[in-house]
Computed example of a mutant assay.
Amino acid sequence: MTAVDFAAFVENLADIASDTILPFFRTALGAEDKNVGGAFDPVTEADHAAESAMRRLIIETFPHHGIIGEEFGSVRSDADYVWVLDPIDGTKSFIAGMPTWGSLIGLLREGSPTYGMIVQPFTRERFVGDGVGALWRGPGANREVIERKLKTRACGDLSKATLLTTSPLLYAESKLPAFRRVEERVRLSRYGGDCYAFAMLAAGHVDCVIESGLKIYDIAPLIPIIEGAGGIVTNWDGGSATQGGDIVSSGSAELHDTVLKLLQG
């Protein structure tokens, strides 16, 4: 079975996530702190409900598949097929009423990202990719649903590039100087993107995204979208990004090489 065969099932998972999460958005929803005593790491009822619903459908449909999720951990993570779920990537943005969050759904085959989707229920957008191609689906000018191919922007000059990161406050003190070396050379730097930053890179609106301390569920679902749109995503050492860590993604190989050299000092 190929990733394409799972496409309709992923759409069902996306519908479940959307239907579960959207009623909570911009309400008086409370958030618990998963990291009591450390940096604020919120989780909401919407996170738990959406991941639970997606897990139920996966287990009912593919009982031999594995699952890695942000809220409820891993089961059968050594299976040939493993689903990677982040019900709300960007929970801080979610509880602040900002629409730069999304539900991430990814599929690993023998440990490699083979299919991924970003679902943004509020803007009614979906970004999907299989590593070979990538598509955006969302509302058109007359609110009809339209679809178009995603393609990264071929910017090779860092001085003309737009850079996104969620927040420098999330970087360890030892990692921040590396990020600043890149930031001081770009034309424009913006904060607060969460998963939506990677979506905008795949869509060709920004040129580079740098993050630090990501988990597998933060990045694995995004890799097939970025690569399917022609982009590159690695860790700061130029290795695989699948397991998370310090991650950089660029729209062109030339720009990526430049950024890696600066990050490595």
Score class of each variant (00 low, 15 high):
residue 167 S to Y: 07
residue 149 K to F: 11
residue 105 I to G: 01
residue 80 D to S: 13
residue 185 R to L: 12
residue 207 D to Q: 04
residue 168 P to F: 11
residue 74 S to T: 14
residue 99 P to R: 00
residue 171 Y to V: 11
residue 174 S to W: 09
residue 203 A to K: 07
residue 203 A to V: 08
residue 83 W to D: 02
residue 209 V to N: 00
residue 97 G to Q: 04
residue 192 G to Y: 06
residue 199 A to K: 08
residue 124 R to L: 11
residue 175 K to H: 13
residue 126 R to I: 05
residue 175 K to C: 12
residue 104 L to M: 04
residue 108 L to I: 06
residue 140 G to I: 10
residue 174 S to K: 14
residue 150 L to C: 03
residue 110 E to L: 07
residue 203 A to D: 14
residue 161 A to H: 05
residue 101 W to S: 07
residue 157 D to K: 01
residue 90 G to I: 06
residue 137 R to F: 07
residue 194 D to N: 15
residue 92 K to I: 12
residue 123 T to S: 12
residue 89 D to S: 00
residue 77 S to G: 12
residue 111 G to F: 04
residue 195 C to N: 15
residue 122 F to P: 08
residue 117 M to I: 14
residue 100 T to L: 13
residue 122 F to H: 12
residue 178 A to W: 00
residue 202 A to M: 04
residue 146 I to P: 08
residue 123 T to C: 02
residue 150 L to F: 04
residue 207 D to F: 03
residue 135 L to E: 11
residue 167 S to K: 04
residue 206 V to I: 11
residue 136 W to V: 00
residue 121 P to T: 02
residue 170 L to W: 08
residue 166 T to I: 11
residue 79 A to M: 06
residue 150 L to E: 05
residue 167 S to R: 03
residue 177 P to D: 03
residue 114 T to K: 02
residue 185 R to M: 07
residue 106 G to Y: 01
residue 211 E to W: 08
residue 180 R to D: 07
residue 211 E to M: 11
residue 170 L to Y: 11
residue 95 I to D: 00
residue 164 L to S: 10
residue 175 K to T: 10
residue 181 R to D: 00
residue 170 L to I: 10
